[in-house]
Computed example of a mutant assay.
Amino acid sequence: MDYNSLSNYINYNLPIIILILVILFIVITIFSITLLISNKRMKKRYNLLMKNADKSSLEEMIRSYQRKIDTSYVDTKLAIEELKLLSNQINHCIQKVGVVRYKAFEDIGSDLSYSVAMLDNKNDGVVITSIFGRNMSTSYAKPISKGTSKYALSDEETFAMNKALGLEKK
């Protein structure tokens, strides 16, 4: 093909070539507008994400959040261990108390004698009794293990322990 034949071919098909170029131009223009809109949306998202960032990169911000997550994970594990320790300690603290005041002797005017049962979560503890008389006063303690004592308990001590255990109405 020589120059004249190419020129004749172009001149003969010029309307078709122009139509194809116009269609390509429209397609490229639509594609460019779509890219611009997409880029604008992406920039909005990025600006929203980086809103409170100190002009550092997104990668540095993600690293910072990862460090915070790692620190929070370690802190959470420590808190759980502390909670387990506290829970174990609480089981050994006095949690149940029953108090009974009574008149131990007929010649004393009011309820000066008392028995106090103090138990932990496993029903271990002590019953403390104090008996007041006109001329004397006596106090003693009896250990409690799993809700029972190896020493004989008086009716008042048993009542105080049952109150602590929730078996008697207060």
Rank of each mutant, 00 (worst) to 15 (best):
M1L: 15
D2T: 00
N4E: 14
S5R: 07
S7T: 04
N11F: 06
Y12G: 05
P15C: 05
I17Y: 06
I18D: 04
L19K: 13
I20A: 12
L21E: 07
L21H: 07
V22H: 09
V22L: 14
I23G: 06
I23T: 09
L24Y: 10
F25W: 07
I26T: 08
I26M: 11
I30E: 06
F31Y: 08
S32N: 13
T34A: 12
T34Q: 08
S38V: 09
S38R: 05
N39L: 12
K40Q: 13
K40M: 15
R41D: 01
R41F: 14
M42L: 12
Y46T: 05
N47R: 08
L48G: 14
M50G: 01
M50I: 03
N52K: 06
S57M: 05
S57L: 05
E60T: 09
M61A: 10
M61L: 15
M61H: 12
I62K: 06
R63Y: 15
S64D: 13
Y65F: 14
I69P: 09
T71G: 11
T71I: 10
S72D: 14
Y73D: 13
V74H: 11
V74S: 04
T76A: 15
L78Q: 09
L78G: 00
A79Q: 09
I80W: 03
E81A: 12
E81T: 05
E82W: 00
S87V: 02
S87F: 03
S87R: 12
I90L: 15
I90V: 14
N91K: 11
H92Y: 13
C93L: 12
I94E: 07
R101I: 11
Y102R: 00
Y102C: 07
K103D: 07
K103E: 07
F105R: 14
D107C: 09
D107P: 04
I108S: 04
I108K: 01
G109N: 12
S110F: 14
S110C: 04
S110H: 06
D111A: 07
D111F: 12
Y114D: 00
S115H: 00
S115M: 10
A117Q: 04
M118A: 15
L119H: 04
L119K: 01
D120C: 02
D120S: 01
N121Y: 14
N121R: 05
N123T: 01
D124M: 04
G125I: 00
G125M: 03
G125L: 01
V126C: 03
V126I: 14
V127K: 01
T129P: 06
T129H: 02
S130Y: 07
I131T: 04
G133C: 09
R134S: 13
N135W: 10
N135R: 04
N135I: 03
N135Y: 12
M136I: 13
S137P: 00
S137L: 12
S137W: 10
T138M: 13
K142S: 07
K142W: 02
P143R: 02
S145T: 07
S145K: 15
K146F: 08
T148D: 02
S149K: 01
K150T: 13
Y151S: 13
Y151C: 01
L153M: 09
S154P: 09
D155H: 11
E156L: 04
E156N: 06
E157K: 00
E157Y: 03
T158V: 07
A160M: 00
A160N: 02
N162S: 04
N162R: 06
N162D: 12
N162V: 07
K163V: 07
A164K: 04
L165P: 01
L167K: 15
L167A: 03
K169R: 08
K169C: 00
K169N: 02
K170G: 05
K170Q: 10
